[in-house]
Design a protein around this nucleic acid. Structure first.
Lengths: 217, 217
DNA sequence: AATAATCTGAATCGTTAGGTACAGATGTCG
DNA sequence: CGACATCTGTACCTAACGATTCAGATTATT
Protein backbone atom coordinates (compact mmCIF):
# COMPACT_ATOMS: atom_id res chain seq x y z
CA UNK A 1 0.00 0.00 0.00
CA UNK A 2 2.46 2.64 1.24
CA UNK A 3 0.32 5.45 -0.01
CA UNK A 4 1.74 8.89 -0.40
CA UNK A 5 0.25 11.87 1.25
CA UNK A 6 -1.19 14.84 -0.55
CA UNK A 7 0.70 17.23 1.64
CA UNK A 8 4.41 17.12 1.01
CA UNK A 9 5.02 19.59 3.82
CA UNK A 10 4.19 17.03 6.44
CA UNK A 11 6.60 14.87 8.32
CA UNK A 12 10.26 15.32 9.01
CA UNK A 13 11.95 17.51 6.42
CA UNK A 14 15.02 16.36 4.56
CA UNK A 15 18.17 16.82 6.57
CA UNK A 16 20.50 17.55 3.67
CA UNK A 17 20.73 19.74 0.60
CA UNK A 18 19.74 17.68 -2.41
CA UNK A 19 21.58 19.80 -4.95
CA UNK A 20 24.75 19.79 -2.86
CA UNK A 21 24.45 16.02 -2.63
CA UNK A 22 23.93 15.79 -6.38
CA UNK A 23 27.03 17.89 -6.94
CA UNK A 24 29.04 15.50 -4.82
CA UNK A 25 27.66 12.48 -6.67
CA UNK A 26 28.37 14.14 -9.99
CA UNK A 27 32.03 14.54 -9.10
CA UNK A 28 32.35 10.90 -8.11
CA UNK A 29 30.74 9.72 -11.36
CA UNK A 30 32.99 12.12 -13.22
CA UNK A 31 36.14 10.73 -11.66
CA UNK A 32 35.34 7.04 -11.68
CA UNK A 33 32.71 6.61 -14.34
CA UNK A 34 29.29 5.06 -13.82
CA UNK A 35 30.36 1.54 -13.08
CA UNK A 36 33.55 2.50 -11.29
CA UNK A 37 31.58 4.58 -8.80
CA UNK A 38 30.45 2.44 -5.92
CA UNK A 39 27.35 3.22 -3.88
CA UNK A 40 29.69 3.56 -0.92
CA UNK A 41 31.90 5.99 -2.84
CA UNK A 42 28.82 7.99 -3.67
CA UNK A 43 27.17 8.11 -0.28
CA UNK A 44 30.49 8.87 1.41
CA UNK A 45 31.01 11.84 -0.87
CA UNK A 46 27.42 12.95 -0.49
CA UNK A 47 27.76 12.62 3.29
CA UNK A 48 24.50 10.80 3.29
CA UNK A 49 23.19 7.48 4.33
CA UNK A 50 22.42 4.79 1.84
CA UNK A 51 18.70 4.82 2.49
CA UNK A 52 18.51 8.59 2.38
CA UNK A 53 20.00 8.42 -1.08
CA UNK A 54 17.54 5.72 -1.95
CA UNK A 55 14.56 7.76 -0.81
CA UNK A 56 15.72 10.94 -2.46
CA UNK A 57 16.95 9.70 -5.84
CA UNK A 58 15.64 6.20 -6.51
CA UNK A 59 18.56 4.02 -7.49
CA UNK A 60 22.06 4.30 -8.92
CA UNK A 61 20.83 4.75 -12.47
CA UNK A 62 18.40 7.50 -11.53
CA UNK A 63 21.05 9.16 -9.42
CA UNK A 64 23.41 9.23 -12.36
CA UNK A 65 20.83 10.72 -14.66
CA UNK A 66 19.95 13.43 -12.19
CA UNK A 67 23.61 14.15 -11.51
CA UNK A 68 24.23 14.38 -15.22
CA UNK A 69 21.44 16.84 -15.75
CA UNK A 70 22.93 18.97 -13.04
CA UNK A 71 26.30 18.64 -14.78
CA UNK A 72 24.78 19.96 -17.99
CA UNK A 73 23.27 22.91 -16.20
CA UNK A 74 26.36 23.73 -14.20
CA UNK A 75 29.25 23.08 -16.54
CA UNK A 76 28.03 22.97 -20.10
CA UNK A 77 26.63 26.47 -20.27
CA UNK A 78 29.69 27.64 -22.17
CA UNK A 79 28.67 25.51 -25.14
CA UNK A 80 25.23 27.09 -25.27
CA UNK A 81 26.81 30.52 -25.00
CA UNK A 82 29.33 29.70 -27.70
CA UNK A 83 26.56 28.67 -30.10
CA UNK A 84 24.97 32.08 -29.70
CA UNK A 85 27.99 33.99 -30.94
CA UNK A 86 27.28 36.04 -34.06
CA UNK A 87 29.81 34.48 -36.45
CA UNK A 88 30.70 30.84 -36.92
CA UNK A 89 34.33 31.71 -36.40
CA UNK A 90 33.46 32.97 -32.95
CA UNK A 91 31.25 29.97 -32.30
CA UNK A 92 34.15 27.63 -32.98
CA UNK A 93 36.80 29.62 -31.16
CA UNK A 94 34.58 30.14 -28.16
CA UNK A 95 33.57 26.49 -27.88
CA UNK A 96 37.14 25.22 -28.26
CA UNK A 97 38.71 27.69 -25.86
CA UNK A 98 35.78 27.25 -23.52
CA UNK A 99 36.40 23.52 -23.52
CA UNK A 100 40.02 24.01 -22.52
CA UNK A 101 39.07 26.47 -19.78
CA UNK A 102 36.43 24.07 -18.57
CA UNK A 103 38.70 21.03 -18.59
CA UNK A 104 41.56 22.81 -16.90
CA UNK A 105 39.47 24.40 -14.17
CA UNK A 106 41.30 23.61 -10.93
CA UNK A 107 39.44 21.05 -8.90
CA UNK A 108 37.50 19.58 -11.79
CA UNK A 109 38.00 15.88 -12.46
CA UNK A 110 39.68 14.90 -15.70
CA UNK A 111 37.81 14.81 -18.97
CA UNK A 112 34.09 15.36 -19.42
CA UNK A 113 31.33 13.38 -17.80
CA UNK A 114 29.45 12.85 -21.04
CA UNK A 115 32.32 10.78 -22.42
CA UNK A 116 33.97 9.51 -19.26
CA UNK A 117 30.71 8.48 -17.63
CA UNK A 118 30.24 5.28 -19.59
CA UNK A 119 32.30 4.85 -22.75
CA UNK A 120 32.88 1.10 -22.66
CA UNK A 121 31.05 -0.75 -19.92
CA UNK A 122 29.67 -4.11 -18.89
CA UNK A 123 26.18 -5.37 -19.62
CA UNK A 124 24.66 -3.95 -16.48
CA UNK A 125 25.67 -0.38 -17.28
CA UNK A 126 24.69 -0.62 -20.91
CA UNK A 127 21.45 1.37 -20.54
CA UNK A 128 23.43 4.31 -19.18
CA UNK A 129 25.92 4.03 -22.02
CA UNK A 130 23.11 4.12 -24.57
CA UNK A 131 21.50 7.04 -22.77
CA UNK A 132 24.71 9.04 -22.94
CA UNK A 133 25.21 8.20 -26.60
CA UNK A 134 21.77 9.55 -27.34
CA UNK A 135 22.48 12.74 -25.43
CA UNK A 136 25.71 13.25 -27.34
CA UNK A 137 23.81 12.80 -30.57
CA UNK A 138 21.28 15.38 -29.47
CA UNK A 139 24.01 17.83 -28.61
CA UNK A 140 25.61 17.35 -32.00
CA UNK A 141 22.25 17.91 -33.61
CA UNK A 142 21.76 21.22 -31.84
CA UNK A 143 25.19 22.40 -32.92
CA UNK A 144 24.59 21.28 -36.48
CA UNK A 145 21.56 23.53 -36.73
CA UNK A 146 23.72 26.52 -35.84
CA UNK A 147 26.27 25.58 -38.51
CA UNK A 148 23.62 25.01 -41.15
CA UNK A 149 22.12 28.38 -40.36
CA UNK A 150 25.55 29.94 -40.87
CA UNK A 151 25.74 28.28 -44.24
CA UNK A 152 22.39 29.71 -45.27
CA UNK A 153 23.26 33.19 -44.06
CA UNK A 154 26.48 33.16 -46.04
CA UNK A 155 28.68 33.11 -42.97
CA UNK A 156 30.12 29.83 -44.22
CA UNK A 157 31.52 29.61 -47.75
CA UNK A 158 29.84 27.81 -50.60
CA UNK A 159 32.18 24.86 -50.56
CA UNK A 160 32.05 24.25 -46.82
CA UNK A 161 30.04 21.26 -45.61
CA UNK A 162 28.39 22.47 -42.39
CA UNK A 163 27.52 18.96 -41.20
CA UNK A 164 31.08 17.72 -41.52
CA UNK A 165 32.44 20.88 -39.94
CA UNK A 166 30.15 20.40 -36.96
CA UNK A 167 31.35 16.89 -36.41
CA UNK A 168 34.93 18.01 -36.88
CA UNK A 169 34.59 20.48 -34.03
CA UNK A 170 32.86 17.89 -31.88
CA UNK A 171 35.67 15.45 -32.60
CA UNK A 172 38.21 18.02 -31.46
CA UNK A 173 36.29 18.77 -28.28
CA UNK A 174 36.00 15.12 -27.35
CA UNK A 175 39.62 14.54 -28.26
CA UNK A 176 40.62 17.37 -25.96
CA UNK A 177 38.83 15.63 -23.13
CA UNK A 178 40.78 12.43 -23.73
CA UNK A 179 44.02 14.36 -24.00
CA UNK A 180 43.28 16.02 -20.71
CA UNK A 181 42.63 12.67 -19.11
CA UNK A 182 45.95 11.52 -20.52
CA UNK A 183 47.81 14.19 -18.62
CA UNK A 184 47.99 17.12 -21.03
CA UNK A 185 48.35 20.50 -19.35
CA UNK A 186 46.14 23.50 -20.00
CA UNK A 187 48.89 25.15 -22.05
CA UNK A 188 49.28 22.05 -24.19
CA UNK A 189 45.54 21.83 -24.77
CA UNK A 190 45.41 25.48 -25.71
CA UNK A 191 48.22 24.98 -28.21
CA UNK A 192 46.11 22.29 -29.88
CA UNK A 193 43.25 24.76 -30.14
CA UNK A 194 45.64 27.36 -31.57
CA UNK A 195 46.68 24.94 -34.27
CA UNK A 196 43.06 24.13 -35.13
CA UNK A 197 42.11 27.81 -35.27
CA UNK A 198 45.09 28.74 -37.40
CA UNK A 199 43.99 26.07 -39.84
CA UNK A 200 40.58 27.69 -39.99
CA UNK A 201 41.82 31.15 -40.82
CA UNK A 202 39.75 30.99 -43.97
CA UNK A 203 36.64 31.48 -41.90
CA UNK A 204 37.63 35.09 -41.36
CA UNK A 205 37.73 35.64 -45.09
CA UNK A 206 34.67 33.69 -46.05
CA UNK A 207 36.86 31.67 -48.36
CA UNK A 208 38.05 28.16 -48.50
CA UNK A 209 41.73 27.26 -48.22
CA UNK A 210 41.55 25.22 -51.39
CA UNK A 211 40.24 28.12 -53.40
CA UNK A 212 42.48 29.65 -55.96
CA UNK A 213 44.02 32.93 -54.95
CA UNK A 214 42.89 32.56 -51.40
CA UNK A 215 44.74 35.17 -49.38
CA UNK A 216 44.89 34.48 -45.70
CA UNK A 217 45.18 37.48 -43.37
CA UNK B 1 57.64 -25.55 -2.52
CA UNK B 2 55.99 -26.20 -5.90
CA UNK B 3 59.22 -25.91 -7.74
CA UNK B 4 59.21 -25.46 -11.48
CA UNK B 5 60.91 -27.83 -13.79
CA UNK B 6 63.71 -26.90 -16.10
CA UNK B 7 62.08 -28.63 -18.99
CA UNK B 8 58.98 -26.83 -20.22
CA UNK B 9 58.25 -29.65 -22.64
CA UNK B 10 57.28 -31.98 -19.88
CA UNK B 11 53.80 -32.66 -18.66
CA UNK B 12 50.50 -32.34 -20.44
CA UNK B 13 50.63 -29.76 -23.20
CA UNK B 14 48.22 -26.86 -23.27
CA UNK B 15 44.92 -27.78 -24.80
CA UNK B 16 44.17 -24.43 -26.41
CA UNK B 17 45.83 -21.81 -28.55
CA UNK B 18 47.08 -19.03 -26.30
CA UNK B 19 47.11 -16.36 -28.98
CA UNK B 20 43.60 -17.23 -30.11
CA UNK B 21 42.50 -17.02 -26.49
CA UNK B 22 44.24 -13.67 -26.13
CA UNK B 23 42.46 -12.41 -29.22
CA UNK B 24 39.14 -13.35 -27.72
CA UNK B 25 39.99 -11.68 -24.42
CA UNK B 26 41.14 -8.58 -26.26
CA UNK B 27 37.80 -8.23 -27.97
CA UNK B 28 35.90 -8.53 -24.69
CA UNK B 29 38.08 -5.87 -23.04
CA UNK B 30 37.64 -3.72 -26.11
CA UNK B 31 33.86 -3.92 -25.97
CA UNK B 32 33.32 -3.65 -22.24
CA UNK B 33 36.42 -1.98 -20.88
CA UNK B 34 38.68 -3.39 -18.22
CA UNK B 35 36.29 -3.23 -15.32
CA UNK B 36 33.19 -3.95 -17.35
CA UNK B 37 34.70 -7.24 -18.55
CA UNK B 38 33.90 -9.98 -16.11
CA UNK B 39 36.11 -13.03 -15.65
CA UNK B 40 33.12 -15.05 -16.77
CA UNK B 41 32.72 -12.89 -19.88
CA UNK B 42 36.37 -13.41 -20.63
CA UNK B 43 36.60 -17.14 -20.09
CA UNK B 44 33.36 -17.72 -21.99
CA UNK B 45 34.74 -15.85 -24.98
CA UNK B 46 38.10 -17.56 -24.69
CA UNK B 47 36.32 -20.94 -24.49
CA UNK B 48 38.56 -21.74 -21.61
CA UNK B 49 38.18 -22.71 -18.02
CA UNK B 50 38.80 -20.25 -15.25
CA UNK B 51 41.79 -22.08 -13.88
CA UNK B 52 43.30 -22.59 -17.32
CA UNK B 53 43.20 -18.85 -17.78
CA UNK B 54 44.70 -18.41 -14.39
CA UNK B 55 47.57 -20.79 -15.11
CA UNK B 56 48.26 -19.36 -18.55
CA UNK B 57 48.02 -15.62 -17.92
CA UNK B 58 48.24 -14.93 -14.19
CA UNK B 59 45.35 -12.72 -13.24
CA UNK B 60 42.92 -10.25 -14.80
CA UNK B 61 45.42 -7.42 -14.83
CA UNK B 62 48.13 -9.50 -16.48
CA UNK B 63 45.60 -10.83 -18.95
CA UNK B 64 44.66 -7.31 -19.92
CA UNK B 65 48.25 -6.23 -20.38
CA UNK B 66 49.02 -9.23 -22.55
CA UNK B 67 45.85 -8.73 -24.55
CA UNK B 68 46.74 -5.10 -25.03
CA UNK B 69 50.20 -5.91 -26.30
CA UNK B 70 48.64 -8.23 -28.81
CA UNK B 71 46.23 -5.45 -29.75
CA UNK B 72 49.15 -3.15 -30.46
CA UNK B 73 50.83 -5.75 -32.62
CA UNK B 74 47.69 -6.69 -34.50
CA UNK B 75 45.82 -3.46 -34.96
CA UNK B 76 48.14 -0.53 -34.45
CA UNK B 77 50.60 -1.35 -37.20
CA UNK B 78 49.05 1.30 -39.42
CA UNK B 79 50.29 4.02 -37.08
CA UNK B 80 53.85 2.76 -37.30
CA UNK B 81 53.57 2.53 -41.06
CA UNK B 82 52.10 6.02 -41.25
CA UNK B 83 55.00 7.47 -39.31
CA UNK B 84 57.42 6.09 -41.89
CA UNK B 85 55.89 7.99 -44.78
CA UNK B 86 58.33 10.35 -46.45
CA UNK B 87 56.48 13.64 -45.97
CA UNK B 88 54.65 14.89 -42.92
CA UNK B 89 51.61 15.51 -45.05
CA UNK B 90 51.52 11.83 -45.88
CA UNK B 91 52.19 10.91 -42.27
CA UNK B 92 49.13 12.85 -41.16
CA UNK B 93 46.84 11.76 -43.96
CA UNK B 94 47.85 8.15 -43.59
CA UNK B 95 47.38 8.06 -39.83
CA UNK B 96 43.99 9.81 -39.96
CA UNK B 97 42.59 7.74 -42.82
CA UNK B 98 44.14 4.64 -41.30
CA UNK B 99 42.32 5.40 -38.07
CA UNK B 100 38.99 5.60 -39.84
CA UNK B 101 39.63 2.39 -41.74
CA UNK B 102 40.66 0.71 -38.53
CA UNK B 103 37.68 1.93 -36.54
CA UNK B 104 35.18 1.06 -39.22
CA UNK B 105 36.53 -2.41 -39.91
CA UNK B 106 33.50 -4.69 -39.81
CA UNK B 107 33.49 -6.84 -36.72
CA UNK B 108 35.74 -4.60 -34.69
CA UNK B 109 34.28 -3.28 -31.44
CA UNK B 110 33.68 0.44 -31.19
CA UNK B 111 36.47 2.88 -30.42
CA UNK B 112 40.04 1.97 -29.60
CA UNK B 113 41.19 -0.19 -26.73
CA UNK B 114 43.82 2.27 -25.58
CA UNK B 115 41.13 4.81 -24.73
CA UNK B 116 38.12 2.61 -24.13
CA UNK B 117 40.00 0.15 -21.95
CA UNK B 118 40.05 2.28 -18.82
CA UNK B 119 39.28 5.97 -19.20
CA UNK B 120 37.47 6.64 -15.93
CA UNK B 121 37.44 3.73 -13.52
CA UNK B 122 37.13 2.80 -9.87
CA UNK B 123 40.00 2.48 -7.43
CA UNK B 124 40.67 -1.15 -8.16
CA UNK B 125 41.27 -0.59 -11.87
CA UNK B 126 43.36 2.51 -11.33
CA UNK B 127 46.70 0.79 -11.99
CA UNK B 128 45.48 -0.24 -15.44
CA UNK B 129 44.26 3.28 -16.12
CA UNK B 130 47.67 4.70 -15.20
CA UNK B 131 49.39 2.07 -17.29
CA UNK B 132 47.34 3.01 -20.34
CA UNK B 133 47.97 6.70 -19.77
CA UNK B 134 51.69 6.03 -19.77
CA UNK B 135 51.44 4.04 -22.98
CA UNK B 136 49.52 6.84 -24.67
CA UNK B 137 52.21 9.27 -23.58
CA UNK B 138 54.88 7.02 -25.01
CA UNK B 139 53.01 6.79 -28.29
CA UNK B 140 52.71 10.54 -28.48
CA UNK B 141 56.40 10.84 -27.76
CA UNK B 142 57.30 8.55 -30.65
CA UNK B 143 55.12 10.54 -33.03
CA UNK B 144 56.58 13.80 -31.80
CA UNK B 145 60.05 12.70 -32.78
CA UNK B 146 58.86 12.17 -36.33
CA UNK B 147 57.31 15.64 -36.44
CA UNK B 148 60.38 17.30 -34.96
CA UNK B 149 62.53 15.57 -37.51
CA UNK B 150 60.29 16.97 -40.24
CA UNK B 151 60.78 20.41 -38.79
CA UNK B 152 64.55 20.04 -38.91
CA UNK B 153 64.54 18.71 -42.43
CA UNK B 154 62.48 21.64 -43.62
CA UNK B 155 59.41 19.53 -44.36
CA UNK B 156 57.51 21.66 -41.84
CA UNK B 157 57.52 25.43 -42.16
CA UNK B 158 59.43 27.76 -39.88
CA UNK B 159 56.38 28.94 -38.00
CA UNK B 160 54.89 25.51 -37.37
CA UNK B 161 55.18 24.13 -33.86
CA UNK B 162 55.83 20.40 -34.35
CA UNK B 163 54.97 19.51 -30.76
CA UNK B 164 51.58 21.19 -30.92
CA UNK B 165 50.89 19.72 -34.32
CA UNK B 166 51.62 16.24 -33.03
CA UNK B 167 49.18 16.64 -30.18
CA UNK B 168 46.63 18.12 -32.54
CA UNK B 169 46.71 14.99 -34.69
CA UNK B 170 46.56 12.78 -31.61
CA UNK B 171 43.56 14.75 -30.39
CA UNK B 172 41.79 14.17 -33.69
CA UNK B 173 42.57 10.46 -33.66
CA UNK B 174 41.23 10.02 -30.15
CA UNK B 175 38.23 12.18 -30.93
CA UNK B 176 37.48 9.96 -33.92
CA UNK B 177 37.40 6.98 -31.60
CA UNK B 178 34.85 8.66 -29.36
CA UNK B 179 32.78 9.72 -32.35
CA UNK B 180 32.78 6.17 -33.58
CA UNK B 181 31.63 4.93 -30.20
CA UNK B 182 28.88 7.54 -30.37
CA UNK B 183 27.49 6.00 -33.50
CA UNK B 184 29.19 7.89 -36.33
CA UNK B 185 29.41 5.97 -39.60
CA UNK B 186 32.57 5.40 -41.59
CA UNK B 187 31.51 8.01 -44.14
CA UNK B 188 30.90 10.57 -41.41
CA UNK B 189 34.27 9.89 -39.85
CA UNK B 190 35.97 10.19 -43.21
CA UNK B 191 34.30 13.53 -43.81
CA UNK B 192 35.82 14.76 -40.55
CA UNK B 193 39.23 13.68 -41.80
CA UNK B 194 38.57 15.44 -45.10
CA UNK B 195 37.84 18.67 -43.26
CA UNK B 196 41.00 18.36 -41.19
CA UNK B 197 43.13 17.63 -44.25
CA UNK B 198 41.65 20.49 -46.25
CA UNK B 199 42.61 22.75 -43.39
CA UNK B 200 46.15 21.53 -43.63
CA UNK B 201 46.57 22.23 -47.31
CA UNK B 202 49.45 24.51 -46.41
CA UNK B 203 51.56 21.47 -45.71
CA UNK B 204 51.75 20.80 -49.44
CA UNK B 205 53.20 24.24 -50.00
CA UNK B 206 55.56 24.37 -47.07
CA UNK B 207 53.79 27.55 -46.05
CA UNK B 208 51.64 28.57 -43.19
CA UNK B 209 48.05 29.73 -43.69
CA UNK B 210 48.69 32.86 -41.71
CA UNK B 211 51.55 33.88 -43.93
CA UNK B 212 51.07 36.86 -46.18
CA UNK B 213 50.35 36.03 -49.77
CA UNK B 214 49.92 32.38 -49.00
CA UNK B 215 48.45 30.78 -52.08
CA UNK B 216 46.77 27.47 -51.51
CA UNK B 217 46.67 25.05 -54.44
C1' DA C 1 0.54 17.29 23.66
C1' DA C 2 -0.82 13.92 20.38
C1' DT C 3 -0.44 12.35 15.88
C1' DA C 4 1.14 11.37 11.41
C1' DA C 5 4.58 11.55 8.10
C1' DT C 6 9.09 11.39 6.89
C1' DC C 7 13.99 10.82 7.55
C1' DT C 8 18.10 8.28 9.46
C1' DG C 9 21.37 4.64 10.49
C1' DA C 10 22.47 -0.05 11.11
C1' DA C 11 21.76 -4.53 9.84
C1' DT C 12 20.79 -7.67 6.28
C1' DC C 13 19.50 -9.63 1.67
C1' DG C 14 20.87 -12.29 -2.53
C1' DT C 15 24.17 -11.99 -6.17
C1' DT C 16 28.35 -11.73 -8.28
C1' DA C 17 33.02 -10.35 -8.38
C1' DG C 18 37.99 -12.06 -8.58
C1' DG C 19 40.64 -15.61 -6.93
C1' DT C 20 41.78 -20.81 -5.15
C1' DA C 21 42.02 -25.73 -3.92
C1' DC C 22 41.92 -30.12 -5.30
C1' DA C 23 41.04 -34.47 -7.67
C1' DG C 24 41.22 -36.55 -11.89
C1' DA C 25 42.44 -36.48 -16.87
C1' DT C 26 46.10 -36.28 -20.27
C1' DG C 27 50.04 -36.00 -22.20
C1' DT C 28 55.77 -36.34 -22.31
C1' DC C 29 59.97 -38.50 -21.35
C1' DG C 30 63.21 -41.71 -19.07
C1' DC D 1 55.74 -49.14 -19.45
C1' DG D 2 55.48 -46.22 -15.70
C1' DA D 3 56.62 -42.05 -13.26
C1' DC D 4 55.70 -37.39 -13.34
C1' DA D 5 54.62 -32.72 -14.75
C1' DT D 6 51.13 -30.05 -16.32
C1' DC D 7 46.41 -29.12 -17.72
C1' DT D 8 41.20 -29.29 -16.89
C1' DG D 9 36.79 -28.98 -14.50
C1' DT D 10 34.06 -28.64 -10.33
C1' DA D 11 33.33 -26.74 -6.32
C1' DC D 12 34.18 -23.31 -3.13
C1' DC D 13 36.14 -19.05 -0.70
C1' DT D 14 36.01 -14.27 0.81
C1' DA D 15 34.79 -9.72 -0.16
C1' DA D 16 32.11 -6.31 -2.16
C1' DC D 17 28.35 -5.04 -4.97
C1' DG D 18 23.52 -2.86 -5.41
C1' DA D 19 19.42 -3.12 -3.08
C1' DT D 20 16.16 -3.39 0.87
C1' DT D 21 14.12 -3.70 5.44
C1' DC D 22 12.95 -1.85 9.87
C1' DA D 23 13.13 0.22 14.37
C1' DG D 24 13.84 4.53 16.23
C1' DA D 25 14.69 9.58 15.84
C1' DT D 26 12.81 13.88 14.27
C1' DT D 27 9.64 17.35 12.88
C1' DA D 28 5.18 19.73 10.97
C1' DT D 29 0.46 19.59 11.42
C1' DT D 30 -3.67 19.01 14.29
Amino acid sequence: MAKKTDNPKMGRPRGFDTTAALDAAMRVFWEKGYEGATLTDLTDAMRINRSSMWAAFGNKEELFKKAFERYLGTYQGYIREALEKPTIREVIESSLRGTVDFLATPGNPKGCLSVHGALAVGDEADPIKQWLIQLRKNGLSVARKRFEQAKKSGDLGEDVDPVALTRYVATLIQGLGVQHASGATKAELMRVVDVALQHMGYLDEGQHPNHKENQAR
